[in-house]
Simulated assay, not measured.
Amino acid sequence: MKTRMKEYRAKHDLTQLDLAKVVGVRRETISFLEKGEYNPSLKMAVKISRYFGIGVEEMFLFEEDELD
């Protein structure tokens, strides 16, 4: 799964640590999410998306084969 977290963090001048504190996770979790090495829970995905004022579908981009 691809994510636009890094792009949105940059727009809001946030570090991975800043976002991790908002979401309530470790900085490493944000790093893994940004690299596509970890899929967030629905709760985490909603929390991140709401923080930036966008929908989950705009923040997290699913490939068609990932939905099968």
Rank of each mutant, 00 (worst) to 15 (best):
M1E: 02
L17E: 15
H12P: 07
K11F: 14
L67R: 14
V25R: 08
R4I: 01
P40G: 05
L17M: 10
D13V: 02
K11A: 13
S31R: 10
F52T: 05
Y51R: 01
M59L: 12
V25I: 09
K35Q: 12
F62A: 12
Q16L: 03
P40R: 01
G24M: 03
L14G: 06
E34H: 11
K43V: 06
K47Q: 06
M1P: 01
E64P: 10
T3M: 01
L61N: 09
I48A: 04
L14S: 05
E64M: 05
E37N: 09
S41A: 14
T29E: 11
K2D: 13
K11N: 13
V46A: 12
K6M: 08
E37P: 02
L42D: 06
L17K: 03
T3Y: 01
S49K: 04
D18M: 04
F52D: 03
R50Y: 04
F60Q: 08
M1A: 11
Y38H: 07
E28N: 11
G36W: 04
V23F: 02
I48C: 07
K35L: 07
K6L: 13
L33F: 04
F62V: 14
K35M: 03
D68G: 06
R4G: 11
A20L: 09
K2P: 00
K11D: 05
K47W: 00
G36T: 04
L67F: 08
E58W: 05
S31A: 13
M5C: 14
D65S: 08
D65Y: 05
T3F: 05
E64A: 13
E63P: 03
L33G: 00
T15V: 09
L33N: 01
R4T: 09
N39C: 12
L61E: 09
F32R: 10
K47H: 11
E66D: 04
L33S: 00
E37G: 00
Y38N: 12
Y38F: 03
A10S: 12
K47S: 06
Y8C: 12
L61S: 06
F62K: 14
D13R: 06
M5G: 01
K47L: 04
T15N: 13
R26Q: 10
D18H: 15
Y38R: 13
R50A: 11
D65F: 02
L33Q: 08
G36C: 03
K47I: 06
K2F: 10
S31E: 02
I54R: 12
M59V: 07
R27H: 15
D13N: 13
T15W: 01
I54M: 12
A20Y: 12
Y38M: 14
R9N: 00
L19A: 07
R4P: 02
M5W: 02
K35A: 06
H12A: 15
E37M: 07
R26T: 14
L61T: 10
